[in-house]
Every structure is written in structure tokens, then in C-alpha cells.
Amino acid sequence: MDVHDVVAHLADTARTTRLGFAVALVRARFDFHRQNDRGVERERGASPRETLERLRRVASRRRPLSERSACRSVRRRLWRAKELTAGIKP
């Protein structure tokens, strides 16, 4: 991982909503590293300058989702999904 990847990670974090984080984590089969790598790949531009511009466009958008908040949110959604599917056979 280099500075280019870190900037791409920051841009991805700034764009990610709580629901988007949960959906991306499910799509990554609950592998946080896979989910993070996909986000970095999505936001990484062809050049460091392009990636930095992407970060500049979203930097003032909102505060990034904190890890603690994200974990709480995902835990609640998983618990609710478990409750909703308790009586359903696979």
C-alpha cells in the first residue's frame, strides 16, 4: 500500500454510507480486507493526481463513518436479519 492507495481509501470512506458499507461487506462475504480493497480499486484514479482530485471532490461532503459506528450498525442489521429469517429453512 502506498500514498496513492491511502488517498483512494480516504475518498472511498468519504463516499460510503452506512447502508453502502453494510452492502459492500455482504458482497465481500464479510471479509473486511476484500471490501476495503474493492473500495480502493474503485476510487483509485489512473494517476495520483486524478485520485487526489476525487478526494477533493468528496472531502467536504461529510464526516467519514467511524469504525465503531459501522460495526454497531452492521451488528444491528445482522441481528435483525437473523430474527427475520429464524423460521425459514434454507
Rank of each mutant, 00 (worst) to 15 (best):
R49W: 12
D37Q: 12
R62H: 10
R75K: 08
A8V: 00
R76L: 10
V74E: 04
D12H: 00
T13N: 05
R72N: 01
L52K: 09
A86P: 04
C71Q: 10
L25K: 01
S73A: 11
G39V: 03
A70F: 02
R77N: 03
R49I: 12
G45Y: 03
T17M: 00
S73H: 15
R75T: 10
R34A: 12
L52E: 12
G87L: 13
T17F: 00
I88C: 14
H9Q: 15
R49A: 14
M1E: 12
A46R: 13
F32P: 12
T13S: 07
R18K: 14
K82G: 12
S66G: 13
A46E: 09
F21L: 03
N36E: 15
P64T: 00
Q35V: 06
V7D: 08
E53Y: 00
L10K: 06
R27P: 00
D12G: 01
H33S: 13
L19Q: 14
T16R: 05
V58K: 06
V26Y: 10
V40F: 06
E53M: 01
R49H: 11
D2P: 09
D12M: 00
R75I: 04
R76A: 10
V7G: 06
E67S: 08
L19F: 13
G39P: 03
S47Q: 07
R76N: 08
R54V: 04
L84C: 04
A14M: 12
L52W: 09
H4C: 08
G87P: 03
R75F: 06
V74K: 05
S47Y: 02
R68H: 15
R18I: 06
R57N: 12
D31T: 00
D37Y: 02
V6D: 09
L52M: 12
R44Q: 02
G45A: 07
V6L: 15
E83T: 11
D2T: 14
D37K: 05
R75C: 10
V40A: 07
E50D: 15
E53G: 00
A86D: 09
R56L: 07
N36Y: 10
H33G: 06
R29T: 13
G87D: 12
A24G: 10
E43Y: 02
S47W: 01
R80N: 09
C71K: 13
G45F: 02
G20A: 07
A14Q: 11
F32R: 15
A11V: 11
S69G: 07
N36V: 09
L84T: 02
R49K: 14
R62L: 04
R61I: 01
R63W: 03
E50R: 11
R72G: 04
R75M: 07
